[in-house]
């Protein structure tokens, strides 16, 4: 790892000022992605601005039919939060399935979505629930947040403060996990919401996407059998040593059915 200057601001204004002033600076949250990347010398920031001391990024608040989760909430804190479990159980459960216990103790919601790994779990929940990303500059709908492979709508220096998730009528997430890393080979988040059915798929393509054919099938009746005959085309899906595009397309159907069945339980 190349050396860098380390900063630990204690409030949001200072963090924004610091990251705004450093052209090659990076925000540091849990470090569970950024530090391995820096160790491999794939990233070489001049400055790290550690967000651990910024109180504005903490906390989980249930409010008005939804829940707002601070960017620095660890996967473990999200998994074990009684408020979150009560408001959106599928989301709390998803957080408990990320990586392994030591990763969950440090990895954060903000870091996960800012990183936008195509196989990460949280992006499926944001898109599946129609969440809103709150930054220090604006609000961004989840549908507009994930732009591509490791690419988001965030501008340089923009800080994710929290994510607001509307509570669905019912929802569930199922992933076919890579047996080594636990990242999703295919993960499907289904939700029956006030504005219709949403099906978000992670792990399968270059970024999280909505499976509109499955959404339409489920709109008629929210039940696993509605998905018989509906499918996502393999064209454009990832093909790698873990799974071919055809296999991923097949897994999307299987995970979607399991998620719908789980949501109905």
């Amino acid at each position: 790892m190349y050396d860098f200057a380390y900063h630990k601001p204690t409030n949001l204004a200072d963090a924004a000022k610091l990251i705004g002033a450093k052209k090659d600076g990076r925000l540091l949250a849990g470090g569970q992605t950024l530090l391995p990347t820096m160790k491999q010398r794939l990233a070489q920031p001049s400055d790290l601005v550690d967000l651990a001391g910024v109180a504005e990024l903490r906390g989980i608040k249930a409010e008005g039919g939804g829940v707002t989760v601070g960017a620095m909430t660890t996967h473990y804190a999200a998994h074990t939060s009684p408020e979150l479990r009560k408001a959106i159980k599928a989301l709390a459960k998803l957080a408990g399935g990320i990586g392994d216990p030591a990763v969950r103790n440090r990895g954060t919601l903000g870091g996960s979505i800012a990183n936008a790994d195509p196989a990460a779990d949280y992006p499926a929940a944001l898109v599946g629930l129609g969440a809103t990303v709150n930054t220090n500059q604006r609000k961004i709908a989840a549908d507009d947040f994930f732009k591509g492979l490791f690419e988001t709508a965030l501008k340089p220096g923009e800080i994710v403060l929290s994510v607001s998730f509307p509570a669905p009528k019912r929802a569930a997430y199922r992933k076919f996990a890579n047996p080594a890393s636990r990242y999703a080979i295919v993960g499907v988040f289904v939700a029956e919401t006030a504005n219709g059915v949403r099906v978000a798929v992670t792990g399968a393509g270059p970024k999280v996407f909505r499976a509109t054919a499955l959404e339409q099938a489920l709109a008629k009746k929210f039940a696993p059998e509605s998905l018989a005959g509906a499918s996502v085309p393999a064209a454009g899906l990832n093909s790698d040593l873990h799974a071919s595009a055809e296999y991923r397309a097949h897994l999307i159907g299987v995970m979607a059915k399991r998620a719908v069945a789980a949501a109905l339980k």
Partner: peptide, 13 residues
């Protein structure tokens, strides 16, 4: 009090 991977954590943190 909680587990962490010491290879993925800065001393500074």
């Amino acid at each position: 009090g909680v587990s962490a991977k010491a290879c993925t954590l800065l001393a500074a943190q």
